[in-house]
């Protein structure tokens, strides 16, 4: 007997789902935390919600955000880059040293970016093509790169002439916000487009979920993984130049523990620490949260030594939401899903 199977109901399968269905639930949770922190600090300190402080906050967050945008790609592929703090210090020290040697600012900027890209390429090649876990590669690179910077500067902070173009970048402003903040915003926009609108971003997400599936689809997954680590190197190079510009000096001891702040910002925003799901909007929110905690606590007159403790606690809470939020989101979509 022939079994008749009825045709499925024809709906517009391609219809764009609602905003709530599309949105990363962990990011929404963190947006809630951001709003709560805004209100909390706003009530606790009258100076918090002023334009000057918001502009100040944007500048404080900028350097973290620039590297965090690139780190979002690395973490989304299921990798990690622990060497970004050292690369920032190396490039900051190099920028100051090269300027002292009398090199032109524009050349120093190019060399600084290339240096970051070089360290990123080394990390990427060893991880993606030599199959050494990125955790190990970048942990070793963290030590080596800072070591070179220390060797070069002998541990001294190298001053930068305030009249030079590089130093002026650190002081430049536009519409009340620093050049650093605008650069960070531009990086976030480019990162957002790259991750969500281009093939590269899809492969980054896919590799973090099931690398073998992406490879079998004909994508050179090693190259994609290497490029993501080159991006963090490049971003750390830019961050190194901007750090030197902002501080007016280059030091091999700069950006200690910076990698943890960056990783915290990425994970706080809802990017899955184990890969497969990345969000640039979330990273912006995550960077804002880490910056806001430091800024708000300082304005409240709390001991600065309390800041890392609070940041750490918020990070643990965020990771809890990152892990649990997904299962809560799945439960929610299960409850609201139409039967297919």
């Amino acid at each position: 007997m022939t079994t008749q199977v009825e045709s499925p109901p024809q709906r517009d399968l391609a219809a764009e789902p609602s905003w709530w269905e599309r949105v990363n639930k962990a990011t929404v949770a963190m947006l809630g935390v951001t709003v709560a922190l805004f209100i909390g600090f706003g009530l606790a300190s009258p100076n918090f919600l002023t334009f000057d402080n918001m502009s100040n906050l944007a500048t404080q967050v900028a350097i973290t955000l620039i590297v965090a945008i690139a780190m979002t790609f690395v973490i989304t592929t299921g990798q990690i880059d622990l060497s970004v703090g050292s690369t920032v210090a190396f490039v900051a020290a190099m920028t100051a040293e090269l300027l002292q040697l009398g090199l032109d600012s524009s050349l120093v900027i190019v060399v600084g970016l290339l240096a970051g890209l070089f360290w990123g390429s080394v990390n990427g090649w060893l991880s993606a093509y030599q199959n050494i876990p990125p955790f190990i590669v970048t942990l070793a690179a963290m030590s080596i790169i800072r070591g070179f910077a220390l060797l070069w500067t002998e541990g001294f902070s190298v001053p930068i002439d305030r009249r030079l173009f590089v130093a002026k970048i650190g002081e430049a402003e536009f519409l009340g916000f620093s050049a650093l903040a605008w650069i960070a915003l531009a990086t976030a926009v480019v990162g957002g487009i790259l991750l969500s609108r281009m093939r590269f971003g899809r492969y980054v997400n896919g590799i973090g979920a099931q690398e073998e599936s992406v490879r079998r689809a004909g994508v050179n997954t090693r190259r994609i993984k290497m490029i993501t680590l080159m991006l963090t190197g490049l971003a750390a190079g830019a961050a190194g130049i901007l750090t030197a510009a902002r501080l007016g000096s280059g030091s091999a001891n700069a950006a200690e523990g910076f990698e943890l702040t960056v990783i915290a910002a990425v994970v706080l925003g809802g990017t899955n620490l184990f890969g497969g799901r990345g969000t640039i909007v979330g990273t912006v929110i995550g960077a804002l949260i880490t910056g806001m905690i430091a800024n708000g606590l300082t304005l409240m007159g709390v001991s600065p030594f309390l800041t890392p403790i609070v940041t750490g606690l918020v990070l643990i809470a965020a990771i809890w939401i990152n892990l649990r939020g997904r299962s809560l989101a799945q439960l929610f979509s299960h409850l609201t899903a139409r039967r297919t």
Partner: peptide
Amino acid sequence: CDTLDVASNLFLG
């Protein structure tokens, strides 16, 4: 790929 949508999987690569 689990975290990509149906269309992205159909056209992966």
